[in-house]
Structure formats: structure tokens, C-alpha cells
Write a protein that binds this DNA or RNA. Structure first.
Length: 733
DNA sequence: AAGACGCCGATTTTT
DNA sequence: TCGGCGTCTT
């Protein structure tokens, strides 16, 4: 703890960042705008606490949302203070809860350690089952996914699911009951879903003072990343871990809150300031990522949200060029624009890796992927979590789960007849009922005569085999065990037989899974099946953005959060897509606006925003207006490109880079109607679709279509207006 | 138990 | 329009 080290951990930080790093006692709220060096501040703060203030690594807990964020944080802290950073617990909320519950869940009475963690598809199977046995048709308003979403909402908002439904909804009379049944079923299966991992931990802490006291002492320093994404339950967990005057640091940016629909509650930022005592607030506004004009655009857009704290990002990276805007004829034209522009950038010296293509919905990826493929532009879609969703992988995991938790009937149903052994749905039901009666699958008698006569006899071999495998689990390595499972159950053979018709990849996947197990063993101190299963459920490979290869990244705006690229394309900048048509309320629109903000602030140097006049949606051609966000962000921030590639021809751009200021004030004059004369020489013949025009009363707008004598212009905040081309007081800008 | 057919639905998805 | 899923058929 000498001066040199002090210097190290504060070096290269701006005054605000230093304030955040040096803060010692009491709650700290860091409001970290996009690209303001948030991770840097957190990691330096952790390093500073440990090396300069003498805090013990084991007393520090850092919570994140993604494994990727946790991993990055760990790597960077290790880079700062070396290996003793390993003593710090840096994990996701869910992994942290799993860490606690594996030790303490027995105290709750309802579950035993060895519980299974259900992912979304497990929960869906479970709910489908419940719906079926309740005599409800599992589709339409009763779609398992819908029911589960409502249940999840209720759990995260600590309310009843029926409360978020309209009284006329067909589900309303059933949902609360389905909720109870679902929870009951999870309990019977000794399984927890992701929500319950959090909720049970909070319950545990609430009802067992001695436990929470222990962990409070242990984790005297708590840090939370992406605080704007926490839900109510996670917030409660935080208040349990840290007393009101505790050493708790939260870092967040409400402008980047894009998971409200999943229960994230920005209100937690407000609550934090009131629930904790003497909160120090440190805002970070200096951006180290983007050129100023990109930030100006983002700043102006987010101003339209009704925020308590106004924030203005600024950078010293230079002005840069305006945001480019391209209005395409249709989605193919738009994709071609992106493809050609990408090509042009490559010949300018950019790498494929420098480029990201973002859009609102996954469905939009298809067109751009087609065009990239045709043009031989190497790309990768980020967000497809292929491997773990493969049938054969899920099957093997189901085997492992049953072997570890013989009450996991969701997994048992999956593998009972996989490979085929003549055990149909009816048989599975009977086995399950009987197993529930006696306790678990392993408590079923081995001998036929001890069971009722209609118990499916075909089940004996597999039940016996499962019991035998389970008894041997502890005696060998995980990878050897997985190998034994796929061989002895006949799974591997069945796949091998299939190979001839199906192709080669499925056994390869199984082999890869086995080496994955081996890799887990190598990387873990005391490898056990339980830990491996937790790892599979919580640390799956969802967030691989680094493919190691040079490729354009194609992804949704949501997946882009936390990333940055020298060149960013945002496609489908249209009403109905961004904001999405299903976002109606003001708060939903605000979230869409934040999503747009997140997209814009991903760009370091160049940002290309595009919209299309027409696009195929749900099987028919639709026309969308240019997004309101285009107008809200300030049209003067954009340079409108008229061609799919290259720069606009002289005079074609409605705004020359150098004249933006002048053009802006002209626009404002026009809007206020002071400059009447400017409209005198309206020559509709010169106006074409896509032009930016100035209207005497409405101000600037974009020409959407020209139809005979009628011209349709989209004005900011007003939407499309039909005007007479002849008489409308319009002037091309 | 696998293939054909018809129907429904269609935002985003850290764990 | 398209694809995933459930049901019906063989």
C-alpha cells in the first residue's frame, strides 16, 4: 500500500472516475453513461479497495447480469492486482444465488440441495403438462410461454399474475391457480426456475437471520453492475446484503434500461437513493468511445424521455461525421445499401470485425444475411445459442439431471423413450405417478410383483440402469460418466444408426459435449456432477461475441448492449419496427427510445441508419413511416444519402456537413413560419420520394410517396400528412 | 413412430 | 410469408 500503487489505480482516470474509485465508506451510486468507462471504474475501484485500503478480497462481492460481464471483470481485476483477485466473488446474480442455495436451501424445507435448475424450455414443458392435466388447451391465450411470462412478471413484481391481465382476458380466472400449480410442481420436482433461484434466496435471508448475518459479514463490500437492469427481487437481495449505510456500490444508466419488459425496474435507482443513507452520487459523462456528433444525436434523442437526471455525453475524440441516413425502396434495397457500404468501408481499410449491423427484431436478420451471403461478406449472427439447444445435447443433460435428481420428471419425460424403448406417453405418466407416490424414480421397487399390475414392464430395464448409473456417478470423472451414460443407455448407438440418413453431426455434438465436460473438470477445483449441471444451466455459452474470426456482427439491438464498434448500421429505422408496433404506452415508447439510444451509442466513428419505404411483413407488403426517433434526434444531425453507395452527389444532400449549423437555424426559422418568402417558389416537379422538404407550417419532413397530385410527407411528431403537390407550401431543402 | 398437412402466430431474451 | 407445432394418417 504505497504511493506508487495508489498512483497505479487512479492513473489515467478523470476526476469523476477518481472520485468513484476512491470513495470508501457508505453507499455509492455511479451514473455511468454509455462509453464512460464504467467497467474501468468498477475494476479500478475493486483494485483500489483491496490494494490501497486493505480490504480483503473475500469480503468483496461483485454482481453482474451476464457471465460475460463477470468474466471480463474478473480478467481485468486480475490484470490490475494479480492472482489474489481470485478471492473476490464475481458472479452473476443467479450464480450467486445458486452458490448460496446449494449450501443453505435445506433450511427452507421445500427443496434439497441437488435441485435442478429449469431453463425456459423446461418450464414450458412443465406448464404444458399442467395445462393439459387441467383440461386447458395449451395454445392461444393459454400458450405456455404466455402463462409463464405472466407468472414471471408476477414473481418479479411480487404481485398476483391475474393483476396484470384485463378482466376480460380468458386466462384471468385460471392464471392464479396455474401459478400455484406450477410452483407446486416445481417443488415436487425439486426444481427451481431462474426467478425462483432469486426468490428462494431472498426468502431464505428473510427467514433466517443468522444466515443473512453471516453473509453480510462476509460480503462487506458489494458492487452491482448494470443496476438499471435489476428487478425488485434483486433489489431486495441487495438491501438484505447491505445495510442502509453499507459499503454498496451500484453502477447504472437508466437511459440504457431496455429490459423493463422482463421485470427490470429503473425505479430501483430512485429507491436506492432513498432507501440507503447518505448516498454519494457520481455521474460519469465523459465518453471515451464515440465521436461528438454521434453523441449529440444520442443526447438529443434521449432528451425526449421524461428523465429525472438529465445527462449529456461528451467526448474529446473529435466531431466526426454526421449520422448517415438512407431511405431505401424496399428491404432488399436497404440490405444492398448496407452490403455495398460495408464493402466500401473494407476497401477503406476497416476490418469486418469493425462493423456491426443492428436491428430491432430477429426476423429482420434474414434479408441482410441473404445479401451478405450473396456478396460473400463473412458475417456472424450473434445471439443464436445453437449448441445447448440441440436435441441431443438437451437429451444428455436430461439424463444427467435425472441421475442427479430422480424427482426431475420434466427431464425424465424427455429421456424415458429416448432412444426408443417402447415407453410411450401413457407409460411415462404411470411411472411418474408411481414414482411420485413412493418418493422418486430411485425409490421404485426393482421387482415387478411389488408394483401394481398395470405398471409398464418395459420400464424396468431403464429404471434399473438409471439407478445403477447414479450409484456409480461419484466414482468417476464427469466426462467418463457422461460417456458411460450415452453408451449404456444406448443413446450413442441409436445416434450412430441414424448417421447414415441424418448426417454426421449429431454424434460429433455428443463427443463435443463430452470434451466440454472434460474441460469443465480441468477448470474446476472439485468437479462434481452438481456443479457441472449448474454450470450448464447458468453459465452456458450464450454470450460469445468473439468468434476469433474476422466477421461482420449481425445482431438485435438488445444483443448489442455493452458492445462497441467503429462502424454501426441500424436497419429498419421505421415506425412499427423502432419503436416496435407492439409498444403503445408512453413508457413502452420510452423503452424503445432507450433501445434506439443504446444502438446509436454503440458506434465509435461511423453510424448508418436506414429505413425502407416498403417491406414485406407477415406475408404482405407494408409501408412504414420513418421512425419518429429520426425526427426526435434532430434531423440536422443526419446526412441523408441518396445512393446506395458512395457519397451523395453535390447538392443532393439536404445538409452539407459544414453547413449543419446554418441549415439548422434555417429549419427553425422555417418551422416558426418567419421566413414566408422561402416557400414562394415551390416547384413540386423537383420533389421526389425520399426528399427532405420544408413545409410552411409543419416544418421539415420526409417525402414518403408521390401519387399523382398527392404527396405524402412524414413530419416529426405528426406522422404522415397527405398534401396537394401543387398547392402545399413545400420547399425542397 | 415417422411423414404429411394444416393452423396459428409473428418483440426484445442477460439467467 | 414462413416456420414451428400439433394432429392425423399410414
Amino acid at each position: 500500500m504505497n504511493i506508487e500503487e495508489t498512483k497505479n489505480h487512479l492513473q489515467g482516470l478523470n476526476p469523476r472516475q477518481i472520485q468513484a474509485v476512491e470513495h470508501f465508506d457508505g453507499p455509492l451510486l455511479i451514473i455511468a453513461g454509455a462509453g464512460t468507462g464504467k467497467t474501468r471504474v468498477i475494476t479500478h475501484r475493486i483494485a483500489y479497495l483491496i490494494e490501497n485500503l486493505g480490504v480483503l478480497p473475500r469480503n468483496v462481492l461483485a454482481l453482474t447480469f451476464t457471465n460475460k460481464a463477470a468474466g471480463e471483470m474478473r480478467d481485468r481485476v486480475i490484470g490490475l492486482i494479480g492472482e489474489h483477485a481470485r478471492g473476490i466473488l464475481m458472479s452473476t446474480f443467479h450464480s450467486f444465488c445458486n452458490y448460496i442455495l446449494r449450501r443453505e436451501i435445506g433450511r427452507l424445507g421445500d427443496f434439497t440441495d441437488g435441485y435442478t435448475i429449469y431453463d425456459e424450455s423446461d418450464c414450458r414443458s412443465c406448464m404444458k403438462d399442467i395445462l393439459k392435466s387441467s383440461g386447458l388447451q395449451a395454445s392461444g391465450p393459454f400458450a405456455p410461454a404466455r402463462v409463464l411470462e405472466l407468472i414471471s412478471r408476477a414473481k418479479n413484481f411480487e404481485s398476483k399474475p391475474s393483476e396484470s391481465l384485463r378482466p376480460s382476458d380468458p386466462l384471468v380466472d385460471y392464471i392464479d391457480n396455474l401459478f400455484d400449480k406450477y410452483e407446486e410442481r416445481l417443488k415436487e420436482n425439486n426444481a427451481l426456475d431462474f426467478d425462483n433461484l432469486m426468490i428462494k434466496t431472498v426468502h431464505l435471508f428473510e427467514h433466517h437471520r443468522e444466515v443473512i448475518e453471516r453473509y453480510r459479514r462476509r460480503f462487506a463490500f458489494v458492487l452491482v453492475d448494470e443496476f438499471q437492469d435489476t428487478n425488485r427481487v434483486q433489489y431486495r437481495l441487495l438491501t438484505q446484503l447491505a445495510p442502509p449505510d453499507g459499503n454498496v456500490t451500484v453502477v447504472g444508466d437508466m437511459d440504457q434500461s431496455i429490459y423493463g419488459w422482463r421485470g427490470a425496474d429503473v425505479g430501483n435507482i430512485v429507491s436506492f437513493e432513498s432507501d440507503f443513507k447518505n448516498v454519494t452520487v457520481v455521474p460519469l459523462e465523459q465518453n471515451y468511445r464515440s465521436k461528438q456528433r454521434i453523441l449529440d444525436t444520442a443526447n438529443e434523442l434521449i432528451l425526449k424521455n421524461n428523465n429525472i437526471h438529465e445527462k449529456r455525453l461528451w467526448s474529446e475524440l473529435g466531431e466526426g461525421e454526421p449520422v448517415n441516413f438512407f431511405l431505401a425502396w424496399d428491404e432488399h434495397d436497404e440490405a444492398q445499401f448496407v452490403t455495398r457500404k460495408t464493402d466500401a468501408l473494407l476497401s477503406e481499410g476497416y476490418l469486418l470485425n469493425d462493423v456491426a449491423v443492428l436491428f430491432r427484431t430477429r426476423a429482420q436478420s434474414r434479408v441482410i444475411e441473404e445479401h451478405f451471403m450473396r456478396a460473400a461478406v463473412p458475417y456472424v449472427f450473434i445471439g443464436a445459442t445453437e449448441f445447448y439447444k440441440r436435441k441431443e445435447i438437451k437429451d444428455i443433460i436430461a439424463y444427467l439431471r435425472v441421475l442427479h435428481n430422480p424427482r426431475d420428471f420434466v427431464s425424465f419425460a424427455r429421456i424415458a423413450n429416448e432412444p426408443r424403448r417402447g415407453i410411450g406417453d401413457k407409460s411415462v405418466e404411470k411411472i411418474e405417478a408411481e414414482a411420485r407416490r413412493v418418493g422418486s424414480l430411485f425409490d421404485l421397487p426393482d421387482r415387478e410383483k411389488e408394483l401394481s399390475k398395470d405398471f409398464p414392464k418395459k420400464a424396468f430395464p431403464i429404471l434399473k440402469l438409471l439407478k445403477s448409473l447414479a450409484s456409480r456417478a461419484g466414482g468417476m470423472s464427469i466426462s467418463a460418466f457422461v460417456d458411460a451414460v450415452v453408451r449404456e443407455t444406448g443413446y450413442y448407438d441409436a445416434l450412430a444408426k441414424e448417421e447414415l440418413q441424418e448426417g454426421v453431426s449429431r454424434t460429433e455434438n455428443v463427443d463435443e459435449f463430452i470434451s466440454l465436460a472434460a474441460e469443465y473438470e480441468r477448470g474446476t477445483g472439485k468437479p462434481e456432477l452438481e456443479g457441472f449441471l449448474s454450470h450448464l444451466a447458468l453459465v452456458s455459452d450464450a454470450d460469445v461475441t468473439d468468434t476469433g474470426e474476422d466477421r461482420v456482427r449481425v445482431m438485435t439491438l438488445h444483443s448489442a448492449k455493452g458492445l462497441e464498434f467503429p462502424v454501426v448500421f441500424i436497419m429498419g429505422f421505421e415506425e412499427g419496427l423502432l419503436p416496435h408496433a407492439s409498444s403503445q404506452s408512453e413508457s413502452e415508447i420510452e423503452e424503445e427510445r432507450r433501445l434506439c439510444y443504446v444502438g446509436i451509442t454503440r458506434a465509435r466513428e461511423h453510424l448508418y441508419v436506414s429505413a425502407s419505404r416498403s417491406r414485406m411483413m407477415h406475408g404482405s407488403v407494408g409501408r412504414n413511416d420513418v421512425s419518429r426517433f429520426f425526427f426526435e434526434a434532430g434531423q440536422h444531425h443526419f446526412k441523408v444519402l441518396k445512393q446506395a453507395y458512395g457519397e451523395p452527389a453535390p447538392g443532393e444532400s439536404f445538409l452539407d456537413e459544414d453547413e449543419s449549423g446554418a441549415a439548422e437555424s434555417a429549419a427553425w426559422r422555417g418551422k416558426r413560419g418567419n421566413d414566408v418568402d422561402e416557400f414562394e417558389g415551390c416547384e413540386p416537379d423537383y420533389i421526389e420520394e425520399g426528399d427532405i422538404v420544408l413545409h410552411k407550417a409543419f416544418g421539415r419532413g420526409t417525402v414518403l410517396s408521390m401519387d399523382g397530385g398527392e404527396i405524402c410527407v412524414s413530419f416529426p411528431g405528426r406522422g404522415p400528412v397527405r398534401l396537394s403537390a401543387k398547392f402545399a407550401p413545400l420547399r425542397k431543402v
